Computed example of a mutant assay.
Amino acid sequence: MTHQYIARCRQILDTVESQTTQIQQAAKWFADTILAGRMVHVFGSGHSRIMVEEMWPRYGSFPGFNPIVELSLTFHNLVVGANGQRQAMFLENVPGLADRILRNYTLTDQDSALIISSSGCNVVPIEMAELFQRQGVKVVALITKEHSEKSTSKRADGRKLSDFADLILDTGAPVGDAMLAIPGLDTPVAPGSTVGGAVLVNSIKAEIAQLLTEAGRPPKVLSAGVVVGAERAVELFESAYDEHAHRLAKLYENVGIPSYVSEPNQ
């Protein structure tokens, strides 16, 4: 089984590599956003949260990304009972929730977004992409293309995440995600979208780092002390977190209803 799973993962790697042009285009948009002092909004409900956290913050990553993680849509640890999986699966198909989430931010057309959803068929990720596009924000959708094409949208009009994307990336996983058939078991096991998604996210990240460095704005990369030394590691973490705060502040300073606090020179 291990050999079979690894073989399927190699096929996924080939699928990701075949999208190099698309990866570089996404990286260009995201780098432009970061160089403008704005943020790339990264969102995923359910287990797509994994890709959000893979982008930032973690070792080998850098500021410039706004990880939008709603606990009501992604908190799976308890499985049943209060805050259980049934509620999360219900909420990710509630119309209007995406609007409530984005109400917290001031968006501009210098922003960009990465929306992750393997099926591309749940309501909240679809509405997130739609709302971003209305604000002139370029949207990159990370889906499992084969699975999405075979699936039915939970949205009333039948539209999917791919319908609100300026660029689509494919994890390369199969329909249903699980990749291995076990003799005597009538359901496949061992999903592949996380593998493809993680490779895509980190490929984008590497391309962005190169673009930022070439532009004279090398990113503050969270790095291990064993690699850069303890003092330098602390400096990088503190400066990266501070930069994240400064970028995030721009998303809040003009949000919603003005007050005397939001007026210039106050």
Score class of each variant (00 low, 15 high):
S162D: 04
L161T: 02
S48K: 06
G216D: 11
V227C: 01
S239P: 02
K145R: 13
G197R: 01
A156N: 08
E146R: 09
Y5I: 13
Q25S: 10
I143C: 12
D109C: 12
G196S: 06
P57F: 12
V42S: 07
F237Y: 14
D170Q: 10
Y105M: 02
L71T: 12
V140L: 03
L102M: 03
V139G: 00
R155H: 06
V175Y: 09
V227R: 11
T21V: 14
L161Y: 04
S259K: 02
E127H: 00
V52T: 14
H244G: 05
Q11Y: 09
A198S: 14
G176F: 12
K145H: 13
I143H: 02
H147T: 02
A230M: 13
G192Y: 00
H147P: 01
E70V: 15
C121H: 00
W29N: 08
I101W: 10
K160F: 01
T20M: 11
T144Q: 09
D170F: 08
C121L: 03
I208L: 06
R232Q: 15
P67W: 03
T152L: 13
S72I: 02
L78A: 11
D242F: 10
Q135D: 08
I23K: 03
Q135C: 05
P219R: 06
V124L: 09
M179R: 00
V69Q: 03
V42M: 05
I115W: 07
G256P: 04
G96W: 07
V199L: 14
E53L: 09
W56R: 03
T21A: 15
P218V: 07
